[in-house]
Structure formats: C-alpha cells, structure tokens
C-alpha cells in the first residue's frame, strides 16, 4: 500500500527530517498537518489516506539477508526481528515463547551468532545475515543437528525446538559442546517445558562426537 519511496535511515546524524516527522505524528488529524505537507494532505479526505500517511512516516527501509536471500523491506522501527520474521515474512519456524528474552524460543543466527530475535529491533539488523530454522537444512537434506534431534527425540511438543536447534548449532560452533555439563550450561538459554533436556544434550553430544561440519 506504500508506493512512495521510504526514507533511508539517517546516516549523518542529522535528524531534521525526523523532527518534522515527529511533529507530524503528534498532530491528530491530517488536516492539521496541512501546513507541513500540503500536497499530501489535500488528498487526505478519508481515514485510508490518513493511514497511508502514517505508514509512510512510520516505516523505514531495512536491507537484510534472510536465509540467503537479500531483501529490502519497509518496517516500522518498533517491529522486532521476531515479529518481522513471523508476521511479515511468514517464517513462523522462529517461535515466540515469552517476547522478553527469557526463554530462547526465538533464537536465530545474526551474522552467524545466536541471538534472541524478540529483543532485537528488526531495523537494528541493517545489513545483517539472518539464519532461521527454515534456512538450516540444505534443501531436503537435514542439518546434522536436526537429524540428531529426531534420532534422540530432543523434543516433545516441538515448540521450543527451532530455538533449541539454532542454539545447539551455535553451541557446537562456539566450542562449548565438550561435555554434558558444558552443553547443559550453554544450552540453558533455551527453555523446554516438556523436559527434553537430557535428549537434547545427547543429540548435541552425538553431533559433536561425529565431528560433522555444522
């Protein structure tokens, strides 16, 4: 619905445009905004146009690579990476369990590092490469950690599983999968309420011992 070219994030620290945008948003109706942007407002006869103006001012351009595909998106700054993935890109493999960095269900890789996507504003990931659970397998061939989770039954309901797997891949890559105790500690940022922890540890140990490339 937004056909106009949105602004780029201000790269020079000048916020002149932002200041006027702020003022604009503070005004409750499009008519009152006439003094700022008359050409737009003359058309603002109904709420739909009002919406479009709001959209225009609220959204910013985000360049982001998700699962190997570079994308240019328009997002509001308040959209989290998690909600961007789930609601706008329909990559629902990444889960919302708490929305406050307290469960790990939303774990994805950003530039190769595991993070909680619920506490990262999407716009903060400008230029980053994001990998979600959907991007882990090579086509039909599952990632070794995915295979190991199936083999060791590292889940029950499956809701925390994408986060667990993304975290497990990192755990091995980081070099923190050298013993059951170390895995338990470095996998403690991913809560599993069904209680599959021992199986998750077994799955990670299995992959680690197998020495596969993760």
């Amino acid at each position: 619905m937004n056909t106009q070219k949105p602004r780029q994030a201000s790269e020079n620290g000048s916020d002149g445009f932002n200041a006027s945008r702020r003022d604009f948003l503070k005004l409750s109706s499009a008519v009152a905004a006439a003094s700022i942007t008359p050409s737009v407002v003359t058309k603002a006869a109904d709420k739909k146009v009002d919406e479009r103006i709001a959209d225009y001012f609220e959204k910013m351009t985000l360049n982001i690579e998700v699962n190997g595909t570079a994308q240019q998106l328009q997002v509001e700054p308040r959209v989290t990476l998690l909600d961007l993935l789930r609601e706008q890109l329909h990559l629902t493999g990444t889960k919302k369990g708490c929305d406050h960095g307290q469960c790990g269900a939303c774990t994805v890789h950003a530039d190769g590092k595991r993070i909680n996507s619920c506490l990262s504003l999407a716009i903060m990931n400008e230029g980053k490469k994001i990998t979600t659970i959907e991007g882990l397998a090579k086509g039909e061939e599952l990632h070794p950690v995915q295979q190991a989770f199936i083999k060791h039954d590292g889940f029950q309901c499956g809701y925390c599983t994408p986060g667990q797997i993304m975290s497990a891949v990192s755990c091995i890559r980081e070099g923190h999968a050298n013993s059951a105790g170390e895995i338990r500690e470095f996998m403690s940022g991913n809560i599993c309420r069904c209680g599959a922890y021992p199986n998750i540890v077994d799955a990670i140990m299995d992959v680690k011992k197998g020495g596969q490339d993760v």
């Binding site: 629902t92 493999g93 959907e134 995915q146 199936i150 083999k151």
Partner: peptide, 21 residues
C-alpha cells in the same frame, strides 16, 4: 521408532495455532 512428525518439528514447518496463513 522416531516421531512421525519429527521432521516437521525440526524444520519449523509444523504449524501451531498462531501460524496459519
């Protein structure tokens, strides 16, 4: 026997309530 829905769960394609398009 492995779970019959294991693959769906480890690939993120298992659809939970809020995830239906």
């Amino acid at each position: 026997q492995d779970r019959v829905d294991g693959r769906a769960k480890v690939t993120g394609t298992a659809r939970f309530a809020a995830e239906h398009p």
